[in-house]
Design a protein around this nucleic acid. Sequence first.
DNA 1: CACGTGACAACTC
DNA 2: AGAGTTGCCACGT
Length: 136
Amino acid sequence: MKTGDRIRRRPGEATYERIYALVRQIPAGYVASYGQIAALVGRCTPRMVGYALAALPADSDVPWQRVINAQGKISPRADSQGTARQRQLLEAEGIRFDAQNRVNWRQVRWPGPELDWLLANGFSPEPAWTPENAKS
DNA sequence: CACGTGACAACTC
DNA sequence: AGAGTTGCCACGT
C-alpha cells in the first residue's frame, strides 16, 4: 500500500461503472433511490449516483429511469423534458405516481440484488443504511 | 417547509 | 500533465 491509496477499488472498476452495474440489476416495475444505490456501492454519496447517471449516453443500456430521489419523486434536472420522459418510462413499466408526483416506496422499492450477486461482483454484503430506513 | 451544509469522479481543454 | 468544468442528492436545523 502506498500513501495515496485512500479507496481500495478493483483495477478496471471505476466508481461509475459499479454504479451502472448496480442500476442494471433493477428490474422493471421497481425503483431505487440515489441513496440506496450509493449505500450499496460503498464509499459513494447519493449525489455521485446522480452525477453518474447524468453522464450516461442516450443509447446506454442502463435503466437510469429507475433511480429517483428519496422523496419518491423524479429529481428535477436541467432538461425538463427528460423529467417527463423519465416519468413516462416508469409509468410504462407500471409505476404509479400520486397527486404529489410521488411513488409509493413501500410498493415499488427495489429490495436490492441477491446476496450472491453482491458477493460475486465485489459489493458489500450489508449496506450501511438507506435514506428511507434512516428516516424511520 | 425552507434553508444551509456535506462531499466527487469523469471529462475536456 | 494538471487545472477547470460539469452534473438527475440527502440530511439536519
